[in-house]
Each structure stands twice: as C-alpha cells, then as structure tokens.
C-alpha cells in the first residue's frame, strides 16, 4: 500500500488575541507525525480539547500549521498557494462534521451538488451525479427537501453525500456520529465503511468512541499534542 498522506512534525499554536491584551499562545499540536495508507480507515482518539479537530483541519488544508508539513501524494499541501489549497479541498478532500453543517437555503440535492459547482464542473452532469449519490445514501426521494425538513440521520447522510461529489481520495470525518443515537450512528457508520469497501475511499475518523475505534484498521492517540504509541489504547 502506498502512502496517501504523510504528516511530518506538525505544530499548531493558537495565538489567542481575544483574551486580554497580553496574548497567551496555546500550543495545541507539538510535533505530530502520522502516515496514512491509501484505502485505510484510521481513527484518531484523544481527550476533548487535545487538538483532534485541529489536526483534521490541517490535514484537510482548512487551516495552516504553525510549522511542519502535510504531504498528500508526496506533495506538501501547505506549500501550496491559498488558491491551490482551495482547489485541493474542493477536489481531493471530503469533510464530514459532527453537526451536519448543511446549507439551510439549499435542498438536499443542491447541498450535494454544490461542491461540483464550486469546481465549475458541467452543471447538468454535476446534478445527475448528485442524484446518483443521493440514491447511494438512500435519500433519493428527499432530493427537493431542505435540511430543516430532514431528520438528524438523514442530514448526516446528505453531509456524507456532499463529501463525495468530487470523488475525493480521502474523507475526513470529525465525530460524524456525535449527535446521533446508537441505531442511527450504526447506519451512518455502515455507510462510511461501505464507502471504504466499495469505493476504496481512505477514511480518517476522529472520535471519542472506543467501540467505534476498534472497528477501524488503525488507531492513533493524541496526548498532549503528540501521537503516542499507535496501537495502545489509553483509557479515558
């Protein structure tokens, strides 16, 4: 298996200017190294506030690190220009968030299609592939419904569908089932695993849930801004 993503000595320090005049830098990531194989499902575990989301955002190019690099297919994405990075997020990455983060003014179909429109793909082709994706996530009959008219599980399915529109190589999911009940979570996870299985998408999953983590191919722990022993499970 080839190396899809390689994170090298990643640092992230927040300079919090909002508290008082004296800025107190918060060092969240203190040299993170991870390698992710193509087609793998990786779980990132860690206590709340340890920097899991921060790491995921840096891997996905949503934010810039203080230092260190993220290689995607051996290219350092943080050496890219902002525009190139936007394009990278658009085409190579699919984000799934804890709260679905769908766009309330757009229908389910449009929410899925919008990534294709951002990429300036052919409009009708984009909508027809959005329809296929809607079928894949099992909500083809809700295509003209707005997010406010969907249940939590359905919204998360749409959010997963949205991540797929440009056939990204990697899906970054930040506690995708955090807001859902057990049964719905299970359905969503099945869908994600199916993505990995049938579509061979690489999946990086941030979670609190050890049970869920057990199902993944590999687990990494973040403790105090660093990755600890990759197979050891620390009780939290």
């Amino acid at each position: 298996m080839s190396n899809l993503i390689r994170v090298e000595n990643l640092h992230k320090t927040y300079v919090d200017a909002t508290s008082d005049d004296i800025t107190t830098p918060i060092e969240v990531l203190k040299g993170v190294d991870i390698e992710v194989q193509q087609g793998e499902i990786l779980a990132i575990l860690g206590k709340s506030g340890v920097g899991k989301s921060t790491l995921l955002h840096l891997i996905g190019g949503l934010d810039r690190p203080t230092s260190g690099s993220v290689f995607f297919e051996d290219r350092n994405i943080h050496a890219y220009s902002d525009r190139k990075l936007d394009q990278f997020r658009n085409l190579e990455v699919g984000f799934i968030f804890q709260s679905h983060h769908l766009l309330p003014e757009f229908t389910a179909l449009e929410n899925i299609a919008i990534g294709g429109l951002i990429a300036r793909k052919n409009v009708s082709e984009t909508y027809s592939s959005a329809n296929e994706i809607l079928d894949y996530v099992g909500l083809v009959d809700r295509s003209n419904h707005y997010p406010s008219e969907l249940s939590g599980g359905e919204r998360q399915r749409i959010a997963i569908g949205r991540a797929l529109i440009n056939q990204p190589k990697v899906i970054l999911a930040d506690e995708p089932t955090g807001n859902l009940d057990r049964k719905t979570s299970a359905d969503i996870l099945d869908l994600l695993w199916d993505l990995n299985d049938r579509l061979d998408r690489t999946l990086i999953l941030v979670t609190h849930d050890h049970g869920l983590a057990q199902r993944t191919d590999r687990i990494v722990h973040i403790v105090d801004g660093r990755i600890t022993d990759q197979n050891q499970i620390v009780e939290t």
């Binding site: 525009r83 936007d86 997020r89 658009n90």
Partner: peptide, 16 residues
C-alpha cells in the same frame, strides 16, 4: 458566517 465556513471547507476560494 457559518455557511461561509462550510463553503470554504468545500473549497470555494476567498474570491468566490
């Protein structure tokens, strides 16, 4: 604001 964040996460540039 939040929607802008979502659109940015989906890869729309500052220009867009």
């Amino acid at each position: 604001t939040r929607e802008i964040g979502i659109l940015r996460s989906m890869g729309s540039s500052k220009m867009k």
